[in-house]
């Protein structure tokens, strides 16, 4: 990894989450983008971190509560008279 401009690999890494979440100032973003343009490893780390977050947020990962689990929950809470319908 190379060290140039104001942002080096280490400072980029420290700001990576906030950069991905769009929480940094435009000035700092520009510095980071300058660094990214010349640093392959940091680009890979950024791309793969973004992809990791995308994957956990994908609808395929959204597990619903199984019906029998919901049924046992309502019984335990003495709310079984409200078991059906599932939602208004």
């Amino acid at each position: 990894m190379m060290d140039h401009n104001h942002v080096n690999c280490e400072t980029l890494l420290g700001s990576l989450s906030e950069y991905i979440d769009g929480e940094l100032s435009p000035e700092l973003c520009r510095e980071i983008e300058k660094h990214l343009a010349g640093c392959d490893n940091c680009r890979v780390v950024l791309n793969t971190t973004r992809r990791t977050i995308d994957l956990v947020q994908s609808p395929a990962e959204a597990v619903p509560v199984p019906d029998e689990v919901r049924e046992r929950l309502f019984k335990r809470l003495n709310l079984d008279d409200y078991l059906k319908p599932k939602s208004q």
Partner: peptide, 25 residues
């Protein structure tokens, strides 16, 4: 400090979200 620099971010969804991919995640 990262030690892995393989760029797998361009792999297709059907690979990343396959049963095996989900298990790995």
């Amino acid at each position: 400090m990262p030690t892995q620099f393989v760029d797998w971010s361009g792999l297709p969804e059907n690979e990343l979200l396959s049963e095996e991919g989900k298990k790995a995640l």
